[in-house]
Design a binder for these strands. Structure first.
Lengths: 283, 283
DNA sequence: CGACGGTTTATGTACATACATTATCGTCCA
DNA sequence: TGGACGATAATGTATGTACATAAACCGTCG
């Protein structure tokens, strides 16, 4: 085809309106009209592969292809849009990687089915949450011990005898206690922690900065506050609290095991959580 | 270079051990030794771009490059590994898309900083959870009304007068009530719901199958059970319960607003949640 | 009719090339 | 000194080409 002069499309120098898809394409007429009718028209905003992602994802959202149905193959899409197969491939492969599509060699590309509730709830650092709400965040270390695993406390996923640091910490929002934290740190992985006083940076933040790139498993439950916890958090015994347990791993080694206990009516987990990356597409 | 005959690497017909990276590469010697020393050697498993992703991500995890530091540019990596720039580009661009790296034109590629706790907790359908635990799942519709928004109940994000369906539902695990559900459904979006009896498929599942591709926002709190709820769930009043609120959207229109109330010691949210896609890399 | 095996088709990967885009870095000049 | 400005170095996008891979398809043969 007319090889070049298409890169210019990526910039701001767009001319045609949203419906006119491409500008100087040679064969106007039937093909583009079909596209417009099908609602498949490109919008001219951003790179071509992004436009194609949006066009295809938009059609799926609008029910043009139902779950499980087959999409046109790369060659067909490529000639429909008048772009190379690689460009279509990039767009479709990305949608597949994001979970919208399933691709099988020889069989074709299908709208993903059984997209179950893949909703995910972001779990943020409490300091960030408090700060974002415009409140004053403070914390206080209540207790700190060095010991070995199995001596009084047992960290299941860690061999007995491993040196660990235990921390107890209270978190405040505008002076009100909102969360109690009890943490174990693996000293084999982070020996430097013994020299850290935690008078400025909170343990969670310190660990994230020090040992990034980790994975974790969580569990979130509701529990009634014990008398001791209730006293610490300044609520009456039995108040509903959110209990979050998190174990963090780095290269398959446990780094830290932490229990958060938050007062129910002073703290909530929340977030606009998306079935993966639907927002990226601006639909 | 020696253009072809490299595709064979993607298959199973690998020959060299994990340390020998490529096979018939022309210039053996210093380059590959450097790679091995640097721990950057490819492992020969899977496509080249995946191997490069693993090699680079692995080095970051091992602290070879710290947060904020700059990586070699595409040309350097390309000659290091003896692959084309496109292949390196694909690997690095994917790592950037997954949040591990930040790229700036002319400036270079950097290890992402401030990777905050982007942990995400998957929120599953309760039927799936119960079934996976090997228990018997049942549900019972307790109440069902058709009305208009504002008549007794108000759904904030929906205009007054919009027809809605309200549902109340109890979920059981092995006969024990574990969750109460109160749901509003936007009849403008899903009018078919009035013809659905929900005698086989639970409302959440029905809606997911019917209106996929949605986004949602959640909030999770801990509350003490009211007397009424306690009676329904078979616990004493005041028992700690997990309260999950979810509003689901489709093409910017609210579809359903649902409140789940789960008994604290019979239900927990949990999941191995990963800072994005670290698991994909098998590190 | 069913097992087997070759053909075909659609996706997957890799490389080469070309050009666009965007900061950064120097340099020159006021 | 400092600001404009152009060279430059990095990533970003698009196309063409070639081959690999997997699985569906189909025809043949037992």
């Amino acid at each position: 085809m007319q090889g070049l002069a298409r890169q210019g499309l990526t910039g701001q120098d767009r001319d045609g309106g949203p419906a006119s898809t491409q500008d100087g394409r040679a064969s106007v007429g039937p093909v583009q009209d079909d596209l417009v009718l099908a609602g498949l028209a490109l919008d001219g905003r951003g790179p071509l592969f992004d436009q194609i992602k949006r066009a295809v994802a938009g059609q799926i959202l609008r029910g043009r292809w139902l779950a499980g149905e087959r999409l046109p193959n790369e060659a067909e899409l490529s000639s429909l849009y008048g772009v190379s197969r690689q460009t279509v491939h990039k767009a479709i492969a990305l949608l597949a990687r994001e979970g919208f599509l399933v691709r099988r060699r020889r069989a074709g590309t299908f709208v993903a089915t059984g997209r179950r509730d893949r909703f995910a709830l972001p779990i943020e650092d409490i300091g960030d949450v408090v700060a974002r709400e415009g409140r004053v965040y403070e914390f206080r270390i209540r207790d700190r011990k060095s010991l070995r695993n199995g001596e009084g406390i047992r960290w299941p996923d860690l061999p007995d005898g491993t040196p660990i640091l235990t921390l107890e910490c209270l978190h405040f929002s505008d002076g009100t206690p909102i969360q109690f934290e009890r943490r174990l740190v693996n000293l084999d992985v982070v020996p430097e922690v013994v020299d850290e006083a935690f008078d400025v940076v909170a343990p969670s933040r310190w660990l994230v900065d020090r040992v990034p790139w980790s994975s974790a498993d969580h569990s979130v439950r509701a529990v009634n506050a014990t008398a001791e916890m209730a006293a610490l958090l300044g609520v009456e015994a039995g108040a509903a609290c959110l209990s979050i347990r998190r174990q963090t791993m780095h290269l398959s080694r446990p780094v830290t095991l932490v229990h958060f206990l938050s007062v129910g009516d002073r703290f909530s987990l929340s977030g606009s959580s998306i079935t993966d990356s639907a927002t990226e597409l601006n639909l």
